[in-house]
Structures are given as C-alpha cells and as structure tokens.
Design a protein around this nucleic acid. Sequence first.
DNA 1: GTGAAAGCGCTAACAC
DNA 2: GTGTTAGCGCTTTCAC
Lengths: 332, 332
Amino acid sequence: MGVTIKDVARAAGVSVATVSRVLNGSANVSASAAELVNNAIEELHYSPNFLGRNLRKCETNVILVIQPTSVHSLYAEIISGMQEAASKHGYDIIATTSYGMGEHETRQMKMLFNRTVDGAVLLGTQYDAQTINKLAENYDIALCCEGIEGANVLTVTVNDEQAAYDAASALIRKGHKKIGIISTNSDAMSSIYREKGYLRALEEHNIPICQDYIYRDSYDYENGKKAVQKFMALKEPPTAVFAVSDILAAAAIKTTIEMGLTVGKDLAILGFDNIALSEMFIPTISTVSQPCREMGMFTIEKLISNITSNEKDNKYYKMPHEIILRQSTGDQ
Amino acid sequence: MGVTIKDVARAAGVSVATVSRVLNGSANVSASAAELVNNAIEELHYSPNFLGRNLRKCETNVILVIQPTSVHSLYAEIISGMQEAASKHGYDIIATTSYGMGEHETRQMKMLFNRTVDGAVLLGTQYDAQTINKLAENYDIALCCEGIEGANVLTVTVNDEQAAYDAASALIRKGHKKIGIISTNSDAMSSIYREKGYLRALEEHNIPICQDYIYRDSYDYENGKKAVQKFMALKEPPTAVFAVSDILAAAAIKTTIEMGLTVGKDLAILGFDNIALSEMFIPTISTVSQPCREMGMFTIEKLISNITSNEKDNKYYKMPHEIILRQSTGDQ
DNA sequence: GTGAAAGCGCTAACAC
DNA sequence: GTGTTAGCGCTTTCAC
C-alpha cells in the first residue's frame, strides 16, 4: 500500500492525531506543527486514504445518480447542474447508467446499501412506489425528472400535465384543431401526465378527442416514424402533432419530410425536452423546455439537506417549464 | 449505523469469521452454518459495508471514467461497452464529467489517489504527457479515444490518421478535388492526426493543398457554420468538406442548406464519430465510425488486467474504423 | 496544543 | 469446519 498517516506522522515527528487535525483543518494545532506536517505531506506525496476516513466517519460525501440512458443530453444537463450544487457542499456526483434495466439499477443501488455513497438520485427508475418507499426508510434517495405515483420521497420534476396542456394550447392558438399526440405505452408518469395535459387542452377548447390521433408506443426513435405514417394514412390527418419527447419529434419530422410534406406548414410538430439536437435539427424543433440545470441543482440541495439533517423533506416539487416555438411549428 | 457483520454473527449463533466466509463464498463452511447465516442476513436485511471490506482488501472493484462532456453520445457508447466488460469481471464503472476543465478533472482524479477507485480511464484529458506518466507510476490509468504524444500508458483509440486518410480518399474517389477540412486548433492528438491523414490523402492523389481549405477553430457547433461560410465565400469554394466531428458536420450541413445549396450535390460533407445524431439528421450524415463499444470493452479488459497483475501493459492500441457513406455525400 | 488509544466493519491468518 | 484476533487507515475522545 501507499504512504499512510502514520508515515507522515513519523516524518513530521508528531502523532497521527496531529496529522489528522491538520488534514481536517482543526484549529487546535500550532503553526509550527502544521508546517512540519504539511512539509511531510508534500515530501511523501501523501494522499489520505478515504476508505479509512469514510469508514470512520460513516460518510462518503458522494452521491450516486442513476440515469436510464446516457445518450440523452437532457440527463447530461441535469447531472451538470447536480455536479455544480454538489461541489458547493463538498460532495461528488458519480453517475451510472441502468439502460432502463432493473437488474442494472439494482446492482448500482448496492452502492447505496453497502455505504459506498451517501445518497442516490434516480432519473427514472424501474422500481415501484412500494419498493421506493421501503428504500426511503433506510436511505436518502430522490427522484428527479420522473416521479412515481404513490412514492413518498423527495421528487423534482416539471409539471408534466400543465406543460403538455400549454404545449397543446400553443398549437390550438396557432389555429390547429386536428392535433395528434405521439405518446408512450410505458407506465412512466411523465408520459401519462403529458397525455392528460394534452387531453385537457383539447377539452377546454372544445375540440373533440379523436382516438385515431393518439399514438402510443415506446420511446424509441422509430415510433415517431410509425406514428406519422399512421396519422397521415387517416382520412382526416392531423395538422399538428405533439410528441412527448424531442427524439420522437425528430423522427416525426424526418418522416413528414420524406413523405414530401412541409413541416411547420402541412404538419406542425412540437416535442418535449429541448435537447441539444432540437436546435441543431433542420428544421429546428419546437418544444417544451425543462429547467434541467436548475432541477439538478435543486434536487441535490434538497438531498444533501436530507442526508445531513434528520428531518427528511419528502415533498414533490414542480419546476417551471417553458414553451419554445421554432421552425417545426412554422415559427421563427 | 446499520446492521453489521457482528449482528449477523450473533443472530446466527456463529462467529463473524463464518459470516464473512459465507459472504465471500468460501468453501470452508458447513451447509448448516451457511443456512443459519443466510437466514440471519435475510432477517436483518444485512448488506455488507464495503468501506470496511474495501479498506481491508485495499481494493474497491470500481473504475472511474472521466469524460470531457456528457452530451456526446460517442462517450455514452464507449462507457456502455466499458460497463459490459467491467461487470464481467465483477467491477463497476462510475463516470464523472470534467467539462474539459483541468480543475474538475483533478478533483475527480482524487478518487484514484484516495483509493476510492482502483483505476481510471480518461476519455480526453487536460493533463500533459509528463503528468500522465508520473501518475501512471503509482496508479492504473488508461487513455481511451484520445491519445497523448509521449504518454507511456495504456491507450486505445482508432487510427485517426488512417481514418481521416480513408475519409478524404472516399471523397476523392467520388470525384472531388477541392476538399476543405473543418479541423480544430486544440492540441488534441485526434484532431492533429485527422488533419495529417487528410493532407496525406490529398498528397498521394496529387491534389495540391490549399490553405484556404483548412479551417481551424474549437470543437463547438458554431464553428461548423463559420467554416462553411468562409469556404463558400472563396472564389473557388470546395465541393466537399471533411469535418473532424459529426457535430461540426451537422452545423456545416445546416449552414449549407441555409445558403440555399444542396448538401451532397453542391457540397458533400463527411464527419467523424457516427454519433446517434448522424443517422437521425436530415440529410443523414456520412461519417467515420469508431468501434465505440469495442474500444470501451477492450480498454477495460486491459485496465483490469493491469490492476490485477503486476506486469503493466502500457501499449498503444489502434482499433479499426469504418467509413459510412450516407446522404450528406450524395450516397444512399 | 498534543498524544495515546479505541474503534469504524471487515477479512484473513492462525489455532484448534 | 469454526472461532479468535490482528489490523487495514483513519478520526476523535479523553487525558494531560
């Protein structure tokens, strides 16, 4: 093994306690002793072994973030915000990817159980409310981006229902009456609530709901294509489409163009997430923007506060969204 | 603190050694004792504290991966391959993001120095060869995707020079003689070698090199735009462009279209990386594909072998690339 | 202001 | 096959 606190103590001619005090910035150490210690540290290239420290202190100052996928720049932004907030409090963020698979998630969550990390944030999870609630009894966890019905745990998301309502309303305001939705058949709350918001917008504007205008499948890129193909084969195809993700919107746009139609004119398309792609795409994609960095920061602030205090905040926080109209709805 | 090995031992009526043996699958334990222990573990919901275990064993079975950015699906793919290889050997991968900033990278590398992880992979680093070499004396590290001139450490990349040569040659084979390159002014070896490969292709095909056809700036999306604007303002604009990244290529494509030109016809554009975007984009982007998953897997295999053995493999491995021609070069 | 020593949870020699 | 025990590197109480 490498050089330990003992070696430093010996080299500096002080006790390990004094070295430890210097290491931890304790006030009770004389300037002369501190200098001896710091010189020894320098000389020996000493770096404290955190396994020892963490074991002793029963804390690691590390927070685990489990993301369902890492190709999604949405999560990258959120994690970036998390990192900023964490470092402000002396914490580190480490990220793993579950690929939406429970087995991976469970394996990664072991870092929480085996005390390798102090807390965990789940950006979408395979666990159900009951499991989450049981975990939350013993560990500090938070949900971000994706809530779970019945989970009594710190949660931070946008108001998906309202966001989708606003998105559909924006399309209605542009004169559309035949509006399709590309949704998912997953049991993800975000998706369900976005569908609800879409329906409420139609209802409140006295637009009859048409089941043919509702397409449900997985989040996969491919399904944006299938949805548009299905929609456009209808006798009365929609003139606008709301997709619950920008990836689906991108696929929808691509398919629309391949059909020889003009996006934003023949068919308006509006997505969700405002990922990097959305602004790069041709045409640029209208979308609902989530305050990613802020959500990440807020989640970590709250989680660290839960970790360090003994009164747990298990509230459900909803952050403000924003509708961004670009070329794919004929704007800009 | 939670329940410890002692609690389990007491509950099972055995010693901690026996519990430890069961935990670690040691053969020297009777079936009856094992059952007692397993029951106690179940009952108490015991999960071993890895801080204790890791401290004792001087290993964590965790490998740190530092990526310069997390919005890049290229890295996501590589890390996915790493995860697959790691779990095969009972290791976990944790990822952090440096945002290309040395201070972050240094802070994250502390996990290596303080023994929180057994090894580290750098997907592009701010460190210079000298620093890397010094680190490599005491720690197991690997470079993936981006090599460093003079670094004597396990490195896995594609053959950037040859890949760029092949890319430019593909354009030449399509009849282009006026070929621009959108490169970077960073000191990243990948970028430098891609430029070299481009130059060699022109030379070997007796095409004179034109300095006006070489645009250098940062990797930022914006610069793909600027490059095309500069190229197209020339008296003799290029008919093809090779960009050292797909992001730059995407920007170049977008700008070309905005200029009223047809990509693949008026201007052929070929990128590098084959990220998810490249196939989604309109038009689809011709590119050089790196074997991301394989590179990730291979890097981890080698790194774990370095960690567990005492003869270090510090070789530089070059993985095979592939040229993929799509719509942006007028193919498909 | 400083040192001695206990102990965090675990593994692995060693003894039986 | 099982238990006792030392000790991994560190922090922190307690004495002085």
